[in-house]
């Protein structure tokens, strides 16, 4: 095992979830390559190779637009996430592209104090290490829960 690589991936994942959970959403697109792909879908859709899920982006610009919309346009009750990420596993590394996966759970806390296990699933990632920083070339967020409660505004 490449210990250095494992640590770098764990560090990337930790920074990613702290960014979201601390509501620094403007920094979130910066975790992705310029042409990075990001999709939230369900395990059911993923296993059946159905392309449409819950949210899809194929550029950093689309992620920036997501954040702008959440800040400026969309209306949703104030809420925060707390991500727990575990079982971080590097599954391959080839020519500057690292493949890795991890499990996640997201607790959603509403302003009135309501706390729910909102999402559970896995990240399936391709991470480019070209250049100075590691960036997601692709992050697939695959939810085990096929039902989304009310709405999904904040990214996972």
């Amino acid at each position: 095992m490449d210990h250095q690589l494992q640590l770098e991936i764990e560090n990337l994942y930790a920074r990613y979830v702290h960014c979201i959970d601390e509501d620094r959403l403007e920094d979130w697109p910066g975790f992705f390559a310029e042409d990075g792909r990001y999709q939230i879908t369900t395990a059911e859709n993923h296993e059946r190779s159905l392309p449409i899920g819950i949210f899809f982006a194929s550029s950093r610009g689309m992620l920036q637009d997501r954040v702008s919309a959440l800040r400026e346009a969309n209306i949703y009750e104030p809420q925060r996430y707390r991500h727990s990420v575990s079982a971080i596993l590097v599954t391959g590394s080839d020519g500057g592209m690292v493949q890795a996966r991890a499990n996640f759970q997201v607790i959603r806390v509403m302003r009135d104090g309501t706390m729910d296990l909102f999402a559970t699933g896995r990240y399936l990632d391709k991470i480019t290490s070209r250049g100075t920083a590691m960036k997601f070339a692709e992050r697939l967020v695959i939810l085990d829960n096929k039902r989304i409660d009310t709405l999904l505004a904040i990214p996972i």
């Binding site: 369900t42 859709n45 159905l50 392309p51 899920g53 096929k146 039902r147 989304i148 409660d149 009310t150």
Partner: peptide, 9 residues
């Protein structure tokens, strides 16, 4: 092309 199940309160 895909299914989504949205729980409504």
């Amino acid at each position: 092309l895909g299914y989504i199940d949205q729980g409504l309160p």
